[in-house]
Amino acid sequence: MEYKDYYKILGVARDASADEIKRAYRKLARKYHPDVSKEPDAETRFKEVNEANEVLKDPDKRAQYDALGSGWHAGDEFRPPPGSGGGRREYEFSPEEAARFSDFFASIFGGAGRGAGFGDVPPGARDRGFARRGADQTARLRISLEDAYHGSSRQLSLEMPEFDKDGRLQTRTRTLNVRIPAGVTEGQQIRLAGQGGPGMGGDNGDLYLEIELMPHPIYRSEGRNIHLRLPITPWEAALGATVPVPTLGGTVSLKIPPNSQSNQRLRLRGRGLPGKTPGDAFIELEIVNPPADADAARSAFEELSKHFAGFNPRARLGV
């Protein structure tokens, strides 16, 4: 396993005072809290920072860690010193605590901890006597807008802490086949009761799946509403026309009123993501000129120019 440099993780010197450690920890905890941070590795960093703090804030654990010596570098291959079973002190950890800590931590302080997704414990779930509810787990689910529209099934592989028959904590890979209902939107959560971490004489925790919609090449979603920019020709805009428009549910015909302009928005009611109140599709018009790359095309534009000699689209700008 890899040696972890807890001082480096918190960005403090090896002789840092308890106050300095606390300050550094608080600052990093705010920065990398998974509910706050947008950094892609926030979860991992938050766990590392918590682990470093767990050790360095406690004088006993810090002394034990310091006793490994200062010759180590982060990432060095680490083997627990021989005979560490004898004089070393074992600490008691709850399963959800142990699940947060690395193998390196466990090799020094006990508690067969392994990383297991980002486990979180409802604060009130701690300390209810012996019966302990399992930790809640949260996992992100990246799905396409098409899957959000139609609904789909996903197979998930999750690492879960679990007790073996001797009561030791182990990590087990579980494969779940989860149904995603039609009409989910960005940031929504699906709660799978009892599918989280195992309880100890109490209920299992819950598993929360948080929906993340992948960016779509043509649509943009806002809640249940879908936005689309629709290119149209100058004559379709001027004269009005019925044109095909793609929607998540398939192609529909859209009537463009005469005298339309770029950036005008048309609403297709109920053509957004489904739900009790389905979202709408908003079609934003964008007038696109045909290329003027041939003599015939250029003369057609010259005809237009002659005909609309008095038209000044910049009148409002005062020029």
Binding site: S153, R172, T175, V184, R191, L192
Partner: peptide, 13 residues
């Protein structure tokens, strides 16, 4: 590894 199929959750909307 353990397989479980067809789990339906509650959408928190």
């Amino acid at each position: 590894a353990q397989h479980e199929t067809g789990i339906e959750g509650v959408l928190l909307d």
